[in-house]
Design a protein around this nucleic acid. Sequence first.
DNA 1: AATAACTTTCAGAATTTCCTGAAAACTCGG
DNA 2: CCGAGTTTTCAGGAAATTCTGAAAGTTATT
Lengths: 191, 191
Amino acid sequence: MIPKTGLRFPSFQDLLKTVNAGQEQLKHARDEFVSQWGALGSQWGINRTMAQIHALLMTAPEAMTTDEVMEELQISRGNAHTNLKELVAWGLLRIVVKKGERREYFEAEKDVWQIFTIVARERKRREIDPALSVLSRCVEESRDIKTPEGKAFHDQMRALEDFVGFASKMSDRVSAMKYGPALQLATKLLS
Amino acid sequence: MIPKTGLRFPSFQDLLKTVNAGQEQLKHARDEFVSQWGALGSQWGINRTMAQIHALLMTAPEAMTTDEVMEELQISRGNAHTNLKELVAWGLLRIVVKKGERREYFEAEKDVWQIFTIVARERKRREIDPALSVLSRCVEESRDIKTPEGKAFHDQMRALEDFVGFASKMSDRVSAMKYGPALQLATKLLS
DNA sequence: AATAACTTTCAGAATTTCCTGAAAACTCGG
DNA sequence: CCGAGTTTTCAGGAAATTCTGAAAGTTATT
């Protein structure tokens, strides 16, 4: 009930309610994010747990321990450990050591552009580079075949090689850019 | 043996040898391409058979039937059928009907830029769009949480949403471009 | 050097994804 | 409407991937 005099200060109870409701909502939203992001991971060729851990830590206010991650996601120690380390290897997580504590804490890279360049680099390494190497080999092997089919094959391989090589360079360039310039460039492209 | 008088016309036998050697080499190179491209498929989140069929048809001089594909790759009818139809659904293969023949032939899109835009569109649909929808939901759900952690979460979700939305638009733009302009733009970027 | 705290590894279980082969369902000419 | 030729479906098996849990390995502390 709002008194006739206008706005009043919220009571302690009101504040408490707001905060509790907020915490509830936040937990809900965050759980959804973690779970859905995990499901998306599959589509991205990243395993579910890895994606979930990443989502969890990206939205964690503080660095977390292996045990906290296990607890939160209800997964085994081995699974948590392997995927945490894999994320560290990617550069998406950092290990933090707190004074006077023996165990490791993990903290996520939260900058969106950083995350993007890391993922782009990794995908290039796993998807583009091997393709390029296969194509180069095929171009070589078919270089001096004289038959028409041979020439057609060679040309097709060359066209693919050129394109993939090009994509590779583009990926490098973009990954190497700072956010500002990239944004500017992209904006021009979108205009 | 080269006669002292200089170059001579190759004999029929010589030509035959060249052609046979060429066909052998071609078969070898092509088999390698098909098999390696299949292996790469896994990394790309596409199943091996689908990638192999695509590789096979991209380098086929003529359209092929289901049975020819089965024979060439040594796979079952069900497998061949499912993946051929999936490739047609993607738009990477076309069905060709030959006069006076009942069965369907399949023919690959060979233009590299076409292939790229098709794959880009499909990946966007499977990887970017669902991510965007998850993010939008999370942004909404966390909009009016008052706690500091709530605000931090909301901001992180918004940053991700912005970026992914941006990527989505970029992908659309690039896919819609013709090869020439895209190349020109990219070349500028690489310079 | 013994203990406790924590990390790493990995064999086998669980789950997910993919493939086979055969049966059902079409399609067309006669 | 029949039957041969062709396509489609799908239950169950095979293969690949991921996860668990426990044992072995490390590192700091007393």
